[in-house]
Amino acid sequence: MTIPKDTLLSLYRTMVRIRRCEEQLARSYAAGTITGACHTYVGEEAVATGVCAHLRDDDAVFSTHRGHGHALAKGVPPGALVAELFGRATGCSGGRGGSMHLFSPEVGMMGTSGIVGPCILQATGAGYSFQLKETDQVGVAFFGDGAVNNGAFHEGLNMATIWDLPVLFVCENNMYATEIAFKDSARNTDVAGRAAGYGLHAEAVDGNDVLAVYEAAGAAVARARQGGGPSLIECRTYRTRPHAEGMRDGGYRSQEEIDSWKARDPISAFAQSLLDDGAVTAADLQTIDAAIVAEIQEAVVFATDSPWPDATTVADHIYAGTV
């Protein structure tokens, strides 16, 4: 597959945007500016980036508690994300959600969730809508290995398959559900193999290789758009920061393991391969790096300068209106 230079640079830009934004959010959490939970996506950037590169604004993404990267990759501006975690009125959920409840339906970011599993079912439902309306849109669920042992995985994959729904299931297998190792949660840890058992297209890829994710997702999204039914991609990856900022990260995994995955950093590896191939120049990447640093600084200024939500609106929008 020959990928145009613009696309390669776009993949790089999105990964760097996620990384720099997450690093900023971690600093803001440490500084006390973020008062609630903050689950970063550091180390897993290639997954959201490689998948969302194939999606349009009218495709629907449903995500998890670890959803900052999905939101950014789907097109939520960094300012709207940072403002949400700062609890500001300009946040993508108006300050009602925080880290775990990011909504931006305008760009097809249909929500992250503090509950493990529902995103699988909701993406299936988006697929049901799109099939009923006979559009070529696609529903996409991002979820971790922790969701694979939840009933939603079984029920969602089964329904998507029997009705040939246009859905892409993306399992980010980072080996730990919070701090419980996947190998201690399932006898069969082959997620793609388990998915294939439902009769859908399933494959496992190196989730730290953005081009591997990009290729697999491209085929799956195209298949869904053409009426070919659902697919699952198991992306084997790793989060290199704690489950959530401020949490103790010891006891359940070793420093050697963390270091070994840091050495497989998806952004550095991609940059190096692009330079090695001569596909881009160092100047190309440096330009992007500098632009993203500025973008994240602007996002923080935007969020900091944004107003708090008006407390008199606290009970607005529970219902659509009177009936």
């Binding site: 629907a60 079912l121 299936t124 439902g125 988006a126 009923l132 309306k133 029920e155 089964n158 329904m159």
Partner: peptide, 21 residues
């Protein structure tokens, strides 16, 4: 299928994307 949680979750996503389950 007999999976109430599953199809209610499906209806959630369907309603969010413009249909009326």
């Amino acid at each position: 299928p007999i999976c109430e949680r599953g199809f209610v979750g499906l209806c959630t996503g369907a309603a969010m994307t413009g249909t009326r389950p």
